[in-house]
Simulated assay, not measured.
Amino acid sequence: MTTFKGNEVTLLGKKVEVGQKAPNFTVLANDLSEVTLDDSKGSVRIISVVPSIDTGVCDAQTRRFNEEAASLENVKVLTVSVDLPFAQARWCGANGIENVQTLSDHRDLSFGEAFGVTIKELRLLSRSVFVVDSEDNVTYAEYLGEVTEHPNYEAAIEAAKAAK
């Protein structure tokens, strides 16, 4: 069960599990170009999923992974939300975020449905973190029971360090 501020919500799509191939998706970069999972193949990816980058926990989550990304070799950090690409770019610029690539799933919820994180009632993505290795295998998956809580940053970072 997943809740948002204590209220049960419905997640659309199928949850991914450790050991399976990560499903592909199409999201938008800040310049409106399409980005897929294949675009970062060959690198370990931390995929940080947030409901909206302009909220407190989402802000903190993105900042934390931005800080950690600076010291991780061959690891790309992708932050996915349904915020418009323009809002993501503005937020990153205003906050000095340079080590994370923000990606928008607002157009068709391709990522949200592929990873089972689309909140049906709110048309937002449920907070979660995934680590995908260089060959597209899911090595870590965290779906938070309460969307407003912080993920386990340390576990995700350790999973990324251990992935190849």
Results as ranks from 00 to 15, higher is better:
A94S: 11
N99E: 12
F111P: 00
D133W: 06
A114V: 09
G145N: 13
V138G: 02
A141G: 10
S134H: 06
V82F: 04
F111T: 03
A162M: 04
S126T: 14
Y153F: 15
A89E: 11
G145L: 13
F86H: 08
H150N: 14
E135S: 14
N99K: 11
H150A: 15
Y143K: 10
Q101F: 05
S104Y: 04
R90W: 12
S104R: 04
G93D: 08
T148D: 13
I119F: 02
N137F: 06
H106T: 05
S110W: 04
F130V: 05
E146S: 07
N99C: 04
L124K: 06
Q101E: 13
D105L: 06
F130P: 00
R127N: 07
G116R: 05
V82N: 08
L109R: 12
F130C: 06
D105T: 13
E154H: 12
A89G: 12
V138A: 01
I157P: 01
S110P: 08
A162E: 13
D108E: 15
E142K: 08
I97S: 02
I97L: 15
Q88C: 08
I157H: 01
I119K: 01
V131L: 00
L109P: 03
K161S: 06
I119T: 06
S81K: 07
W91Q: 05
G145Q: 15
